[in-house]
Amino acid sequence: MSTVKAKDDGAGGFIILFFILGFVASMILGWIVFPKLLYSQKEQPFNFDHAIHMDMVGACESCHFFRDDGTFSGIPKLAQCIDCHQDVQGFTKDEEIFVNEYVRNYREVPWLIYSEQPDCVYFSHSAHVLSGGMECKTCHGPIAETETSRPYEYNRITGYSRDIWGKSMLGLKKNPWDRMKMDDCAECHRENGVKQNSAQTHKGACFVCHK
């Protein structure tokens, strides 16, 4: 009886202190250390200035075009760049790298794609842009106005771009382009009432996107 009382007298503070210590340590681990461990950064092969290209060519589709069969070309291949970049244009270091290392050697530029979905996801640009009439910036944001390529952050476990989960560890977003998970697809489809009773809800609907 007396022993228990003695414990009650002295230990409560310690217990709370250690609870708080454990709590704080794990919060630091989960919120600060874990994201640093989980993500790594890579730089693009060289800087790309979207703004300057938009001034020259006018529209996203000039470079990110749809092919005749409706498939989306994505990041341009060297073949398209070469039309203008056979020789060094302007005076930037990046232009020099591009022409000397890639154009002259017919080497494709290994661009890192911020918005590339995992291989298990099938996404049709054609359905959204050509059929749905959506604009590029609705999902991709004001990328056309950027003058520099930000560092490419990727997940060390999955190998995919951080843009898919989003910058926020909690998965919070302000803009559509802050996160590109399946919930985000679903949210937009619900809001816009896209084919709520067809392919996406029927048996086999999984395979529309997860082929």
């Binding site: 210590l21 709590f23 794990s26 919060m27």
Partner: peptide
């Protein structure tokens, strides 16, 4: 107590 605190903190991270 440290472990429980850690578990709680981890769950909230």
């Amino acid at each position: 107590a440290f472990l429980i605190g850690g578990a709680a903190g981890t769950a909230l991270s």
